[in-house]
């Protein structure tokens, strides 16, 4: 009984996270300005990281954790670089 509930709520939360990624993708596509798109990228990678964690729970393996950690690291670096680019027009000065 409780296993069924867990499986269904895993499915539901994965669907919700995919919907959240769709909302972020909508913001990336529509803009209207560059900073809105970067904000969308920021939300998108967080949702992708959480989705990987739910995959990890679903398959019962901790290997997804490493992938989630790498997404978090690279996502932070790329958003910071993009924000810097918006401010100054170049990343490395």
């Amino acid at each position: 009984m409780s296993t069924t509930i867990l499986i269904w709520s895993l499915m539901a939360s994965q669907l919700m996270l995919v919907a959240a990624m769709a909302c972020s993708a909508y913001r990336i596509l529509t803009g209207p300005r560059a900073q809105d798109r970067v904000l969308g990228v920021d939300a998108l990678y967080v949702c992708g990281m959480l989705l990987l964690l739910t995959f990890g729970i679903r398959s019962g393996s901790t290997i997804y954790f490493e992938a989630a950690l790498i997404i978090a690291l690279l996502g932070f670096v790329s958003t910071a670089a993009l924000a810097k680019f918006l401010m100054r027009g170049e990343v490395i000065e």
């Binding site: 919907a19 959240a20 969308g40 939300a43």
Partner: peptide, 13 residues
């Protein structure tokens, strides 16, 4: 957790 994340991105949109 996923509900809160979805709400956040709905707000974003």
């Amino acid at each position: 957790g996923s509900g809160l994340t979805l709400l956040g991105t709905i707000g974003l949109a």
